[in-house]
Design a protein around this nucleic acid. Structure first.
Lengths: 251, 251
DNA sequence: ACGGCGGTGTGTACGTTGTATCCATTCGAT
DNA sequence: ATCGAATGGATACAACGTACACACCGCCGT
């Protein structure tokens, strides 16, 4: 007999968009073995971590999973969905630190953990930003919730609370982004030490510095002690930001 | 024979026989400097600004320039080069503000101008970060120099000075990145108001909020006044950061 | 027992992308 | 006037995302 098009929601113009996350949390209808969203996400993350985000193609993903190129499309609607899935899976590692409730410690350790996650998966900052924003994933909202709730009851209105969380997040994102860019550039060019990078940039840098137009910058290149200490720089900036929040918000 | 049709392979029928007469009537040979790196960069920027960075393909670039798809490769070694060129051209707009020397004002207006530039060319945050890092142009070092020199003579060592500049830059990058992501997402989906975005996200947001796991976040969604005021949020965060720097550095 | 039905993976195919390579034309120095 | 170098055009190819139709297979009501 003529086979019928698989179309669960037959009538109606808009078949009630069930979000990816809602589907994820529903118990699997059957213990499907070969392919699950979790396995797909894990495979994608494995490829991205070891070969870079550009190596994550639907075909490469399929070989990693040992299936045909189109198989994964039963579970993700497209590559965009795959990246969402990978992002959320990675942020699942952003576990709460339960034993602290002081707002400053919550935000500080959250920032440090966030940094560690992104450094472990630098491709996170390479995914296009609307993509990341679209992936407002449960795990990331949960992190925001923890930060927000640590600020509750301190006399701040809700806008100020969100401003605090947003400020810290912006700093963290910017800092980690720069750090990853540095790391990815070195990896991309095959450099292994910061000195490799410096020698590669030396000619153009020497030319710029010899113009004498950047004396203070030149002094930093010459005398800076913490040039190669990203953690020091991250924490210094973070503590400044937290100081500023405490001062301006009076908390 | 005198001239022969190029026929490297496929000895089949000639698919497009261009007669001598047709060839004679072909449009006048253009003046020879139709292509320059500047024109190529400008064309790429024009496309990216109006149609998004994904529309910037080598073929689309060629039609924008009115040349054949491969023509631009005489001037850029690949798409990566093209993006470098575009980035460099855009950051030339980052002019100094000469009439202020107070460190706080220098950093603050620099941040606001930086924000404006990126908002004007939101695709800047979409091109991969090592890309941006590699394109360290005189204009960007000059901006750093201005910021650094405004901090000179305040008793800070050079590492602290760079930490201050870096902290502000990280915040600005993170904040502007989030803002652009928001804007790009809306543009990408064809939404024109924030309410369009909210209604689009409503189903999954409702699901997430109905779990009851994010009460404070939910309160923000419900009661937040400045949700749609990105400039307020940017300046609030920026002033916090500057407060923190002043406090921690004692300046 | 059985037949079909929905869910799962496969095979094939198409349009688009970046870019390598070769060809044709034109300009400028001789 | 001529020739080499510079410039733009044409063609081609591999890899990509993904649409579509098919084959399989376990579960169900009968």
């Amino acid at each position: 007999m003529a086979r019928q098009k698989a179309q669960p929601s037959a009538p109606g113009p808009d078949p009630a968009p069930v979000s990816l996350w809602e589907r994820l949390e529903r118990p699997a209808p059957a213990p499907r073995t070969t392919l699950t969203p979790q396995k797909i996400a894990a495979a994608g993350i494995r490829i991205a971590d070891t070969e870079g985000i550009d190596a994550v193609t639907m075909r490469r993903l399929a070989t990693e999973l040992g299936v045909a190129p189109m198989a994964a499309y039963r579970y993700v609607s497209g590559k965009s969905d795959l990246l969402d899935l990978m992002t959320d899976a990675v942020y699942a590692d952003l576990k709460p630190a339960d034993d602290i409730d002081n707002w400053r410690d919550v935000l500080r350790t959250g920032a440090l953990r966030n940094r560690e996650i992104v450094l472990r998966h630098p491709w996170l900052i390479q995914i296009s930003s609307p993509q990341v924003l679209r992936a407002l994933t449960p795990n990331r909202i949960a992190a925001a919730e923890r930060a927000l709730s640590s600020l509750d009851g301190l006399g701040l209105d809700i806008d100020a609370m969100m401003a605090v969380v947003g400020t810290v997040n912006c700093y963290v994102h910017g800092a980690v982004s720069a750090e990853c860019a540095h790391y990815l550039l070195m990896q991309e060019e095959g450099w292994t030490t910061n000195d490799d990078l410096r020698t590669a940039f030396a000619p153009q840098m020497r030319y710029l510095m010899d113009t004498g137009r950047y004396p203070t910058y030149h002094r930093y290149l010459h005398d800076g002690i913490h040039k190669d200490d990203p953690l020091w720089r991250f924490e210094t900036g973070l503590d400044s930001v937290l100081d500023g929040i405490a001062a301006r918000m009076g908390i």
